[in-house]
Computed example of a mutant assay.
Amino acid sequence: MGSKNKLRRFQDNASFKNVIQPQRDEVLKGDFVLRNRWASYFGNTNPIVLELGCGKGEYTLALSMQNPGKNYIGVDIKGARIWSGAKTALETGRVNVCFLRSQIELIDLLFGPGEVHEIWITFPDPQIKYKRTKHRLTNLEFLEKYRGILAPGGTVHLKTDSEFMHGYTLGILHGSGIPVTYSNHDIYHNGGAPAEVLETQTFYEKMFLESDKPITYLSFSFTMP
């Protein structure tokens, strides 16, 4: 993507009413105004669902169409990517969707305790090299952040083409005593996966399936409802 096109998208994001772009310093100081107040942004108390590392927001948009009674927030630091999802949401009148441009490492400063009901992590970078462990979205540090913002019984979903990421996450969960609700190494061939996991596919997921690459999925919850 050319620099001019990126600049135009950044300008568009600044004008889109469904794109929130807090300053990092603002968040670190605890001054982010929507923390503990996301219900006021959406104008209702419907459950809030996050997609972390949402990219173009394909999953966020698809889930929001399937579940109009929930509010969806796509989180990503790449402004040129979330532009696509935000623009589509505006054009299709999706009032239960917005996009938050921020680092995922700040997630516990962006949402208050118990404010989130579900978290989706779809096709994250597995960060295979050991020195990149701290960047894996299911390492212990991130899990503690998710635990802090999830409501009782809240669910975390991980859908990935990376067998390494799937296995790593299972190991972390088992080692930490966090119960796994569901786990499948090949959801399109083994059967039994939830419908919303099978019916929603990203562009890259379709590419993986065309090359006959297995897609894995697991879900877990820190506490019972």
Rank of each mutant, 00 (worst) to 15 (best):
I187A: 04
S176E: 14
L143S: 12
K6Y: 00
P152H: 06
P124A: 13
K213L: 13
A86T: 01
R9K: 11
L34C: 08
F111N: 09
E144F: 07
R9V: 00
L198K: 08
P225Y: 01
K129Y: 10
N71C: 11
M1T: 04
K145M: 13
S219K: 06
S84L: 10
G153S: 12
T45W: 03
E51S: 06
Y217P: 02
K6A: 14
N46G: 07
F164K: 06
V49Y: 09
R35G: 09
I119K: 04
R101E: 03
S3I: 02
W83I: 03
G148L: 04
E141Y: 02
D108E: 07
A62Q: 13
G93C: 08
Y182S: 05
K29Q: 14
K17F: 07
A195H: 14
G43V: 01
F164Y: 15
L209N: 00
L158P: 10
N46W: 13
S219D: 15
T133I: 15
D212G: 06
S211V: 05
F164Q: 11
Q103K: 14
L90F: 07
G30V: 02
H135S: 15
R24G: 03
L28I: 12
Y72S: 03
H135Q: 12
M224I: 04
K29M: 09
L218C: 04
V180E: 01
I48C: 12
W38D: 09
K70I: 00
L90N: 10
V116S: 13
T92W: 08
L170M: 11
H185W: 10
G175V: 05
L218M: 13
S183A: 15
R94E: 08
N184F: 04
E115H: 14
G167E: 09
H157R: 10
R37V: 00
N36S: 08
M165Y: 09
S211L: 13
V180A: 09
T60C: 06
Y146Q: 14
F42K: 05
V75Y: 02
R101I: 03
I187C: 04
Q103F: 15
